[in-house]
Amino acid sequence: MVESETRPRAAVIALSGYRTGGALSALDEVETYWARLRDDQGTLPSRAQLDPRGFSRALSNCFVAEAMAPRHLRLRLTGQHMTDLMGMDMRGMPLSAMILPESRPVLEEKIEALLAGDGASVRLTLISPRSYNRQALFAGMILLPLARENGSPTKILGALATVGTVGWTPRRFQILGETANPEPRPAQDEGEARRPALTVIQGGIVEPEPAF
């Protein structure tokens, strides 16, 4: 991966293998498990119904967040990968802490639509720009709504996976676009290659951060 490739097209190329067993396959594992629970009962699964054994290979990438407001999520449980990316325990922090300021309004819009929507998932393509002693780091994030439980705040099952070397922390991300996400296929078809389609979010080309 070339460090200077920070355009959306480069992100599509870098992430094109995530449905065929690449570095971002953790997102598919989590989504497939969530979709299976939903299909079995006809409604959104609840936090209490989640069994980590169902997506054990992706646990390091997973998180559970709850709605603090219509446009904000607070992380309640986080996997080790998020700690590695930020250099700190992210529990209790807002999800937006992992997003660069210029992309936070986009994240807020996606969260608002997710919480008020029909139960559809949201999948985002991200980049942490290159800077001093850090290569560009491409990433994918998925947000999966969970059912309310006894009037408690709405919870979200999510996952974040990256392609590249983490380098110095913290690594915060710009949102490049939302990935059009076809419905998960049955288990026997999961190995088939499916190229993601990126809907680019306007906001310009990522510029490298200053060295100091």
Rank of each mutant, 00 (worst) to 15 (best):
P129H: 00
L126A: 03
K110H: 11
E112A: 15
G158N: 09
M98D: 00
L143R: 01
L126T: 02
P153I: 11
D118L: 15
P101K: 10
L157N: 09
E112H: 13
A120M: 12
F138T: 05
G158W: 01
P129D: 10
L143N: 00
L144E: 15
A120F: 11
F138V: 09
E102N: 10
I99P: 00
L143E: 01
E108R: 12
A136F: 02
Y132A: 01
A116L: 10
P129W: 07
A139H: 01
N133G: 13
V122T: 05
G151I: 00
L115Y: 09
G140H: 08
P105Q: 04
L144G: 11
F138E: 12
I142M: 01
E108Y: 10
L95V: 10
P105D: 01
V122A: 06
L157G: 06
R130F: 04
M141D: 14
I127W: 02
L137G: 04
E109T: 13
R148F: 03
L115C: 09
P105H: 03
Q135K: 09
A147L: 12
P145Y: 08
A97I: 03
P145N: 08
R104D: 03
I99W: 01
M141R: 13
I156C: 04
I99S: 02
M98S: 00
A120T: 10
E149P: 08
M98E: 00
N150K: 12
L124A: 02
R123T: 08
L107V: 03
L144Q: 14
A136I: 06
L144Y: 15
I142L: 10
P101N: 06
E109M: 15
G158L: 00
M98K: 01
E112N: 11
Y132D: 04
G117K: 11
S152A: 14
A116D: 09
G119I: 03
K110T: 07
M93L: 15
S152C: 07
P145K: 03
R123Y: 04
L107P: 07
I142E: 11
R104G: 00
V122M: 07
L143C: 00
T154L: 10
R123K: 08
N133C: 14
Y132N: 01
G140W: 02
S152W: 09
L143H: 02
L144I: 14
P101H: 05
N150C: 06
M93N: 13
V106Q: 02
I111C: 12
L144V: 15
N150M: 09
F138P: 06
L124D: 05
Y132W: 11
L126K: 06
T154R: 05
G151E: 00
L126W: 04
K155C: 04
I111M: 13
T125R: 05
V106P: 01
I127P: 02
A116I: 10
G158V: 01
I111K: 13
E102Y: 05
L95N: 04
R134D: 15
I156T: 08
R134A: 08
K155I: 11
V122S: 07
P101R: 08
A120S: 15
T125S: 13
F138D: 13
L114Q: 09
S121F: 05
L95C: 03
R130S: 08
A113D: 13
A116N: 09
L137P: 04
R134W: 14
L143D: 02
E102D: 05
L146M: 00
I99E: 00
D118S: 15
S131H: 14
E109P: 11
V122Q: 06
I127G: 04
Y132M: 07
S128W: 03
R130Q: 10
R123Q: 12
M93H: 13
T125F: 12
L95H: 08
